[in-house]
Design a protein around this nucleic acid. Structure first.
Length: 302
DNA sequence: CTCGATCCCTGGACGC
DNA sequence: TGCGTCCAGGGATCGA
């Protein structure tokens, strides 16, 4: 579940390791998660990776003009191209020694000019890869909302308070804010003491301000700790993150709230499992939490 | 506009 | 031990 902090961690790792490298050859496995696999095969060989950026949950590998043959034209607008990579749930992107076995889920392998292979592996293939020229890239990026780390207080409050959707659904909506997923949505709502099922329109300016601060604080701390390793997230060096130890709500059903010791509960909001403290985060009238599973009850003392 | 349902996909957890 | 079932989740899409 790479979200903003995990993708940022990967981007920083890749910047250290693959910047300036030229792609020599490409080999593909399954391609059903690639926008246009033929475009990758035709256009990647010969290009250099000039920049690595994070855009929401996407990695953006900015590429140079092709240096040897290929189908590079000198047409204006064809120079600025990029590889857009979404890691989905289980995607990994890391430079790997070629002698290391690929494993059955390595679906994109880019041989680099230093002899290593930049591999994209993704067991579930919920990710996405696209080779894009300038105009399509710009069109793609336009679909996404503000960067949660950069958005200003006024704009955040405006966005949140103008809609009737549930706050959790809004946080997850990439066209509103880019980069937030289930973990950091729940964590920031817990910190701001706002129930995930609250309607955006009904939040006060003060609540909106608190939520923005909580969100930014949590994202920054998570980046410092190199992300959360839930399931199988690993950074570009193959190292797990540390932030999962700091989770206060996500995945803690039945465990004590860190503030008030009330057992954390779970409910479905926006079609996703949502974890919250039923005491600190006041629920809207109609909302119903899922019953606490028996196996999780009364586990508070040992 | 917002909602829920459904699909995609596989591995891990769980129940019997 | 082994098998079946459910669930996780981001995003697209569709109908209500």
């Amino acid at each position: 579940m790479p979200e903003l902090p995990e993708v940022e961690t990967i981007a920083r790792g890749l910047r250290e390791t693959i910047l300036g490298r030229q792609i020599i050859r490409i080999e593909l496995g399954k391609t059903d998660f690639i926008d246009d696999a033929a475009a990758l095969e035709q256009n990647l060989p010969g290009r250099r990776i000039e920049m690595v950026e994070r855009y929401g949950k996407f990695l953006l590998l900015r590429l140079s003009i092709s240096e040897n043959g290929g189908s590079t034209s000198s047409l204006p607008g064809d120079g600025q191209t990029a590889l857009l990579v979404h890691l989905g749930m289980t995607g990994h992107l890391a430079p790997t020694p070629v002698e290391k076995p690929r494993g059955k889920h390595a679906h994109v392998c880019l041989l680099l000019d230093d002899g290593r292979e930049l591999r994209y592996t993704d067991a579930r293939r919920f990710g996405r890869i696209a080779y894009l020229t300038e105009a399509p890239l710009a069109a793609e990026l336009k679909k996404f909302g503000a960067d949660p780390l950069e958005i200003r207080r006024e704009e955040f409050a405006f966005l949140i308070r103008k809609r009737r959707a549930r706050i959790k659904a809004m946080l997850l909506d990439q066209s509103v804010l880019r980069g937030i997923g289930n973990i950091y949505a729940d964590e920031s709502l817990w910190k701001a003491r706002i129930h995930p099922a609250c309607i955006g329109e009904k939040l006060s300016h003060r609540q909106a301000a608190q939520l923005r601060i909580a969100l930014q604080d949590i994202l920054r701390k998570a980046i410092k700790l190199r992300g959360s390793s839930i399931s199988d997230f690993l950074d570009a060096d193959g190292e797990p993150g540390e932030y999962q130890r700091r989770h206060r709500a996500y995945g803690r059903e039945g465990e004590e709230c860190f503030r008030c010791k009330t057992p954390i509960r779970r409910g479905i909001v926006g079609g996703r499992s949502s974890y919250f403290c039923p005491n600190c985060q006041r629920s809207p009238r109609k909302f119903k939490a899922l019953p606490l599973p028996k196996k999780l009850r009364g586990r508070m003392r040992a």
